[in-house]
């Protein structure tokens, strides 16, 4: 097992401050401390080589969990093993086989070109000259970095910087990769590129990848398995397709007709939309075959399309705690 997490908890103690003048003064004399439970009893395992997405709304506990896995945060209780190491023990051997990329933070040294950071990482991770050149060449080609290497980091665009961040994180060929919102703020085209790179890298090097993202595109393109977390609790752990079936027991049936007859659609399914000859219905999964064949028999059908509901909708449902998906 590459990553093994058992009954993980993390509590933070935070100072509560009231807004405004009086609140600010009051907090000088009396500090109110509140305990926030960021992660509550999370357990999961990820076999090596797998790529898994961590989903959840803002503040769900995704980043906190990733930070514990990377050894940055000390768990309040529970156990973590990553490739046989306990992350918080801060062993150099552990740090050499893992890597962390945070979309909102930079490891590149700000005022000098990315290549300088790469060279520092080469020394720190004790990468052999040959291995370094080979890895760098590969990353430069895959991520199209050639022209970026010698420009000061601060002059790079967000997308260019992110590609260099990924390269910096992969130079030592980590076995485990933690990606915290790697595509945040990127345009659709760059998102797609970064995504394709991560997928390809995972396939070629059998790197275990755990990624968090707000973009469904990242998840559907890269991962078969998702972990859904909200309010610090794990709500779902399993295949993405299964989640769709569980949460949305219907499919969307789109039928293009020569003209829309003025009838009630209740016998077929729940009407979503009917305009310009196109009828969209929500039909229970078990009835989809029957309903579509009835359409073909009874109407002049020009085109018929069966789709799963959009992923965003599924996830929104999954985030609701009463969804009981696990």
């Amino acid at each position: 097992m590459s990553i093994q997490v058992e009954h993980l908890y993390k509590q933070f103690r935070v100072h509560v401050r009231q807004a405004g003048w009086t609140g600010a003064v009051r907090s000088l004399f009396k500090r109110e401390i509140r305990t926030v439970e960021a992660v509550r009893d999370i357990s999961f395992t990820i076999p090596s080589g797998e790529i898994v997405a961590f989903l959840g709304p803002n503040g769900a506990g995704k980043t906190t969990t990733i930070k514990m896995l990377a050894g940055l945060l000390y768990p309040s209780s529970g156990s973590i093993q990553v490739a046989g190491y306990v992350p918080f023990e801060q062993k150099a051997e552990f740090k050499k086989i893992m890597s962390l990329v945070m979309g909102q933070k930079s490891q590149l040294i700000w005022d000098i070109p990315p290549m300088e950071t790469f060279l520092v990482n080469k020394a720190i991770y004790e990468i052999e000259d040959r291995a370094f050149r080979q890895t760098l060449d590969e990353l430069v080609e895959l991520l199209e970095l050639e022209e970026l290497l010698t420009k000061p980091t601060r002059s790079l665009s967000l997308g260019q910087r992110m590609k260099c961040e990924l390269a910096a994180a992969l130079l030592h060929r980590p076995k485990v990769l933690f990606l915290d919102e790697p595509t945040i703020g990127l345009d659709v085209h760059t998102q797609e590129k970064v995504r394709r790179f991560i997928g390809q890298y995972n396939r070629e090097h059998r790197t275990t990848v755990l990624l968090t993202s707000h973009y469904m595109g990242d998840v559907t393109a890269l991962c078969d398995r998702v972990l859904i977390i909200n309010h610090g609790k794990l709500l779902y752990d399993g295949e993405l397709d299964m989640l769709t079936e569980k949460l949305t027991p219907y499919k969307l049936l789109e039928v293009q007709l020569s003209s829309i007859p003025d009838i009630s659609w209740d016998a077929y399914g729940e009407l979503v939309d009917a305009k310009e000859g196109k009828v969209t219905l929500r039909v229970p999964r078990e009835r989809i075959h029957e309903v579509s064949s009835r359409f073909l028999q009874q109407f002049d059908v020009r085109d018929l399309n069966i789709e799963d509901p959009p992923m965003e909708e599924v996830i929104t449902l999954a985030f609701q705690e009463d969804a009981h998906v696990s």
Partner: peptide
């Protein structure tokens, strides 16, 4: 600012 995290995760 949290950038110290990158120093902590590196093996030096």
């Amino acid at each position: 600012e949290g950038t110290f995290s990158y120093q902590i995760v590196r093996p030096f």
